[in-house]
């Protein structure tokens, strides 16, 4: 099993979700996060004083899939989250030990 984390632009979430649904992904976890990479932050001004906001709002999605599914999943996220500008985000792929469905106690591939 693979654990896949993708940090993407918030407004791309709907497109990514729809794309993943179309290739048969049945669930994901989503979180609002902030961070920085190569994309610069922005300036905010309050009563004339300038503040640099280094951390940019992003959305992190997490999924666990069977090994064979991982390449298609990564390709789908790339396609749907792409704008071509700096700041499109990153995808992290990790090996996953096991998974358990709380309701039934199923493990491994049956649990995801």
């Amino acid at each position: 099993m693979k654990h896949i984390e993708a940090v993407i632009r918030p407004f791309k979430l709907d497109e990514v979700k729809e794309k993943l649904a179309s290739i048969g992904i049945k669930g994901m976890t989503v979180e609002e996060v902030r961070g920085f990479g190569r994309q610069r932050g922005h300036t905010e001004i309050y009563r004339g004083a300038e503040y640099t906001v280094d951390f940019v709002s992003k959305v992190k999605i997490e999924l666990v899939v069977e090994d064979a599914m991982a390449p298609a999943l990564v390709a789908a996220i790339r396609e749907a989250a792409y704008t071509g500008e700096v700041g499109d985000g990153k995808i992290f792929i990790m090996d996953m030990g096991d998974a358990v469905r709380i309701r039934t106690g199923e493990t491994g591939g049956n649990a995801i």
Binding site: H42, T43, E44, I45, Y46, V53
Partner: peptide, 8 residues
């Protein structure tokens, strides 16, 4: 907010 008023 950000684009027209530089605020959040």
């Amino acid at each position: 907010d950000l684009s027209e008023h530089t605020e959040a």
